[in-house]
């Protein structure tokens, strides 16, 4: 019993243990196809961001080519990326940079 649990723990922590202080992020990338108003609409509707924050993120995507739209645990960030893909936005998941 004991050894099984220890093994399970070891498996679970491998990835998180590399840099436990750094969270994961969902990143949305610029896409020449999507309307700016649509990207803002998705950010407001899905994340519940106020208009100003949603527009700031949309403009960051537009001008910088990418924006971090959420950070937290990996599972949640993958869920957000999947939702973004559902809305037709180009999104990736990555660990926050040091």
């Amino acid at each position: 019993m004991t050894s099984t649990i220890e093994q399970l723990d070891a498996d679970l922590v491998t990835d998180e243990a590399v840099r436990p202080d750094l969270p994961w992020q969902t990143i949305v990338w610029d896409d020449p196809v999507n309307l700016m108003t649509y990207v803002t609409y998705v950010f407001r509707s899905y994340f519940g961001y106020p208009r100003e924050e949603a527009e700031r993120l949309m403009l960051q995507v537009h001008h910088d080519g990418r924006a971090v739209v959420a950070s937290g645990n990996r599972e949640a960030m993958e869920r957000h990326a999947q939702a973004m893909h559902g809305y037709g936005l180009q999104a990736t998941v990555a660990r926050a940079e040091a």
Binding site: E78, A81, Q82, H85, Q90, A91, T92, V93
Partner: peptide
């Protein structure tokens, strides 16, 4: 590929897993 983007462009294993689950 535009409709179902790669969520892990730098990590083939995670990319495959993500695609399989989503």
């Amino acid at each position: 590929g535009r409709l179902l983007p790669n969520a892990y462009p730098d990590d083939a294993t995670n990319a495959r897993d993500f695609a399989r689950y989503t």
